[in-house]
């Protein structure tokens, strides 16, 4: 403790101060960075009961994704006014791209442009794998199960689901922008139980990042993966083939579909649930078609 003198020293507006560095901006940021590092190294930060670490997510993980979001995919957003400011809602989006980069971009869009932390519901495969499991929890996501979905919606969180699951993300390039089956509608039942609105979301652009032309089933089975993709660049170019193609993206949010008119008990009525699931699916398919027309070519500077 000998070196740690108390900070109650009269602030010296010393000549050493470099005025050229626009008004203390750099030392301030340095002090902030030091305070951040101190919190991280001493463990004095909070995570919620799901393991979400907002600070790490914002300052480190999303920071790594932002260049990809802004400069590589040049993501554009529409319909942000439909995202509720601080109440619970269920974002339902299409899933595509062979590697679920769309989930990450959706998270950046909602975090940076709508000021909401999206809590995605992921497959249980994610939680069995080392690294992925704890990164997923730390960035706010959790297992797709009824208990977690209900709990998050009750707490007024913005929950996100990709009901197509692996069927969507791993579909061949020829099937692009064609929505697959929407699971068993569990997400709709959760929304009805919580009375939370469903926010249909269309993501255009992710289909072109890794065009999946083939699938080596034997390798997939060996590695315990749902599929082993062949794309124009992977695995031919090795690690270079992992670079996603720079397609132009649009993430659009549609008008919320209200569920508070239903009785929560209707979540147990399969007819209500399946009809609403179909309605959500058609809405997103329509949004996709519109946004795709609006975007035009997938690689605008090239074509």
């Amino acid at each position: 403790m000998a070196n740690a003198q108390p900070a109650k020293v009269i602030p010296i507006t010393s000549a050493r101060e470099d005025r050229a560095r626009n008004d203390d901006g750099v030392p301030d940021r340095l002090a902030e960075a030091l305070a951040y590092l101190r919190r991280r190294i001493t463990g004095e930060y909070d995570v919620d009961e799901f393991g979400y670490d907002p600070e790490l997510t914002d300052k480190v993980l999303l920071e790594l994704l932002r260049p990809l979001y802004r400069h590589w995919f040049r993501v554009e957003t529409t319909g942000l006014e439909h995202v509720p400011a601080d109440t619970g809602a269920l974002v339902v989006a299409n899933h595509s791209g062979t590697v679920p980069v769309d989930a990450l971009m959706l998270q950046v869009a909602l975090h940076d442009e709508a000021g909401r932390a999206v809590r995605l519901l992921g497959a249980d495969l994610v939680y069995q794998l080392p690294f992925l499991s704890h990164l997923s929890r730390k960035t706010g996501h959790t297992l797709a199960c009824r208990e977690d979905a209900d709990r998050l919606l009750r707490k007024g969180e913005l929950v996100g689901v990709f009901p197509e699951g692996f069927k969507g993300v791993g579909k061949p390039f020829s099937e692009r922008y064609k929505l697959q089956r929407f699971g068993r509608g569990g997400f709709v039942a959760s929304a009805i139980r919580a009375g939370a609105p469903i926010l249909p979301c269309a993501i255009v652009g992710a289909e072109e990042i890794y065009p999946k032309l083939g699938d080596v089933k034997v390798l997939a089975r060996m590695l315990g993966l749902p599929y082993f993709p062949i794309t124009p660049l992977f695995p031919w170019l090795g690690p270079l083939g992992l670079i996603p193609l720079p397609s132009k993206w649009i993430i659009g949010f549609g008008e919320p579909i209200r569920t508070d008119e239903y009785d929560p008990a209707e979540a147990e009525d399969p007819m209500v649930v399946l009809n609403l699931t179909d309605h959500v699916r058609e809405t997103i398919q329509q949004q996709l078609t519109e946004l795709r027309l609006r975007r035009g070519h997938a690689f605008p500077p090239l074509f």
Binding site: A7, P11, I12, S14, E17, A31, L34, R38
Partner: peptide, 9 residues
Amino acid sequence: WASGALARR
């Protein structure tokens, strides 16, 4: 100590 040093500058 580092933050203190920074604040004293």
